[in-house]
Design a protein around this nucleic acid. Structure first.
Lengths: 187, 187
DNA sequence: AAGTTTGTAAAAAAAATATTTAATATATTA
DNA sequence: TAATATATTAAATATTTTTTTTACAAACTT
C-alpha cells in the first residue's frame, strides 16, 4: 500500500507543478515571448537544468524550435547557459529570480523606447529651429511650430523619467523605496 | 516669396512630426499594440481630435480597422472618446500624458500577472499540503514536494512586490521616490 | 583525421493575427 | 416614425509570425 500512497502523492505533485507551469506560460506574454518560449521557461523553472533534447522531449516540439526559444529567453536573461565539461550537449538553467527577469526585460524595452524617441525629438527640434530662425515665416506657422515644440518638450519629461526608472532598477536603488520583502529585515 | 518661405517651413514642420510619428509607432510595441494601432496613436498625438473617417483618410486604411485599433487604444487608456453634440460622428483624442499611458498599461499587465500566478500558487499549495499531511508518503517524495513548496513561496515575494509596485504607481507615490521632473519644483 | 553528435541557418509549412469587404445594427435627424 | 448617417460585427482574405523540415556547420571522440 505504500506504493499507492506514493503514486497518489506523485500525481498531486505533478498536478501542483502543472497549475503553476500553465499560468506562468500564460502570463509570459508580459515579457514579450512566444507561447512556446513561455511554456519552455515555465517547464525549466521546475528543473535544475535541461539540454535541448530534454526540452524537445518534454514539450514535444522540434529541436530548432527549442533552440530559438532558448535563445530568446537568453536575450531576456531568463535562461543561462551552463558550461559543463564531459558532455558535448549544452545545458541551460532557468533564472529563478523573477526580479532579475523583470529588470532585464523591462529595462531593455524602456531603454530602447527612451533612446529612440529622444533621438527622434532631437531631429525634430533641428527642423523646428530652422523655422524659428527664418523671419519670413508667417506667424501662424511659427505658432503651430511652437505648439509642436512645446508638446515634444513636455514628452521629454517622460522619457527622462523612464531613463531614471531604468537606472534605479539596474542599481537596485528602487528596492530602498519599494523593498522586495517588507517583512524580511535582511533585504 | 513669402509663400515660398511658408512652403518650406510647412515642409520642415511635417518632416519634424514625421520623425516623431515614425518612432512613436515603432516603439509602441512596448505597450503591446499592433503596428496599425501604433501608427494611429502616433498620428493622433499631433492632432486635437479625430473621427474614424479622418483616421481612415490619414492612414489609408479601412474604417473597421480604425474602429478596432481605436478600441484597443481605449483599453490602454491611450485614447479617449470625446462627446460632442452637433455631429453624429464619434471623435477621439489621444492621451498626451505618457505617464498616464504607462500607468494604465503596465499596471494592467502586472496586476494580471500577479493575480493569476498567486491564484495558481494557492492551488498548488493545496495539493502539496495534502502530501505533507499524508504520513505514508516516502520521505524522498516529501522532500521533493518541500523543495517545490519553497520555490513557490519564494516567488510570492516577487508577485507581492509587483502588486506594491502597481499600487505605488496608481497612487502616484512612486513620484515621491522618482519625481517626474527633478528640475521642476512644482511637481 | 574520420566519424559521430550536437547546434544553428535557411527554406517551407502551419498557425495565428490583422485587415478588409460585406452585411447588420445603432443612433441621429427631420 | 422613417430616412439617413455612422459604427460595429461577421466572414473572408491577406499578412505576419511561429514552427517544422531539411540541410549544413561546428565541435568533440576515438
Amino acid at each position: 500500500m505504500a506504493a499507492s500512497n506514493d503514486d497518489m502523492a506523485r500525481e498531486k505533485l505533478e498536478e501542483a507543478k502543472g497549475y503553476v507551469i500553465e499560468t506562468i506560460a500564460e502570463t509570459m506574454d508580459v515579457y514579450g515571448v512566444t507561447p512556446a518560449a513561455g511554456k519552455l521557461y515555465a517547464t525549466m523553472y521546475f528543473k535544475d537544468q535541461m539540454n535541448l533534447d530534454e526540452m524537445r522531449e518534454e514539450l514535444g516540439m522540434s529541436k530548432p524550435s527549442m533552440s530559438t526559444s532558448v535563445r530568446k529567453l537568453q536575450e531576456n536573461e531568463m535562461v543561462k547557459k551552463k558550461f559543463q565539461r564531459g558532455s558535448r550537449k549544452h545545458t541551460y538553467a532557468a533564472e529563478k529570480d523573477f526580479f532579475h527577469s523583470f529588470m532585464s526585460y523591462f529595462c531593455q524595452m524602456w531603454d530602447r523606447e527612451a533612446k529612440m524617441n529622444m533621438e527622434a525629438i532631437k531631429q525634430a527640434e533641428f527642423e523646428l529651429d530652422q523655422i524659428f530662425e527664418d523671419e519670413n515665416v508667417s506667424s501662424e506657422l511659427v505658432d503651430e511650430a511652437r505648439k509642436i515644440y512645446e508638446l515634444l518638450d513636455q514628452s521629454k519629461v517622460y522619457y527622462r523619467w523612464l531613463e531614471r526608472l531604468v537606472a534605479s532598477i539596474r542599481s537596485e536603488e528602487i528596492y530602498e523605496f519599494l523593498p522586495k520583502d517588507p517583512e524580511d529585515k535582511n533585504t
